[in-house]
Amino acid sequence: MNHALFIVKVVKPPIHLMFKDYETIEIKVEFPISRQKNSKNEIILLLWGDHREDFLKYYKVQDYLLIEGIVTLNVNNKKINVTVKKLYPFLLV
């Protein structure tokens, strides 16, 4: 299974999407520090339900998050998507 935990930084405001009867948001985030110069450090989070409402209510661009979710790879666009199962605020001092 592609289950993972990440600490990420929100870099762009959410984009609202509609799938059948479900409202979701798509958020572009990046890892705080890239380890290699040529490594890709941006991923896209997909949130719906309570996670979507909580994100819109409490979080904004430049916030750090600890996310737990399922990783998928979009081969056509070469983008990494994470369907969020749990979402927590993260503080870097």
Rank of each mutant, 00 (worst) to 15 (best):
H3Q: 13
H3K: 14
A4E: 14
A4R: 13
L5M: 13
F6W: 07
I7V: 15
V8W: 05
V8F: 07
K9L: 05
V10I: 02
V10W: 00
V10D: 02
V11H: 00
V11F: 00
V11R: 01
K12V: 05
P13C: 02
P13W: 01
P14Y: 04
P14D: 06
I15R: 10
I15V: 12
H16N: 10
H16M: 09
L17D: 10
L17G: 04
M18S: 13
M18K: 15
F19D: 15
K20Q: 13
D21P: 01
Y22M: 06
Y22D: 07
Y22E: 11
Y22N: 07
E23W: 01
E23H: 07
T24D: 06
T24A: 14
T24W: 08
I25Q: 09
I25D: 12
E26A: 09
E26T: 07
E26I: 04
I27C: 03
K28F: 02
E30P: 08
E30T: 11
E30N: 15
F31A: 04
P32M: 05
I33S: 08
R35G: 14
Q36C: 07
K37D: 10
N38R: 15
N38S: 14
N38H: 12
N38V: 09
N38D: 15
S39L: 13
S39Y: 13
K40T: 08
K40Q: 15
N41T: 10
N41F: 09
E42Y: 11
I44T: 15
I44P: 00
L46D: 09
L46W: 08
L47K: 02
W48A: 02
W48D: 09
W48R: 06
W48N: 12
G49F: 02
G49H: 00
H51F: 10
H51Y: 12
R52G: 06
E53G: 01
E53F: 01
E53A: 07
D54V: 11
D54H: 12
D54L: 14
F55S: 07
L56D: 03
K57Y: 08
K57L: 09
Y58K: 14
Y58P: 06
Q62D: 14
Q62C: 06
Q62K: 13
Q62W: 09
D63H: 09
D63W: 00
D63K: 04
D63C: 02
Y64H: 15
Y64C: 10
L65M: 01
L65N: 00
L65I: 00
L66D: 03
E68N: 13
E68H: 11
G69D: 07
L73E: 10
L73I: 10
N76F: 15
K78P: 03
K79Y: 12
I80V: 15
I80C: 11
N81E: 07
V82P: 02
V82L: 09
T83G: 03
T83S: 10
V84P: 00
V84S: 00
K85V: 09
K85R: 07
K86N: 13
K86S: 11
L87K: 06
L87G: 05
L87A: 05
L87M: 14
L87H: 04
Y88W: 04
P89Q: 03
P89C: 04
P89R: 06
F90P: 03
F90R: 10
L91M: 11
L91T: 13
L91H: 14
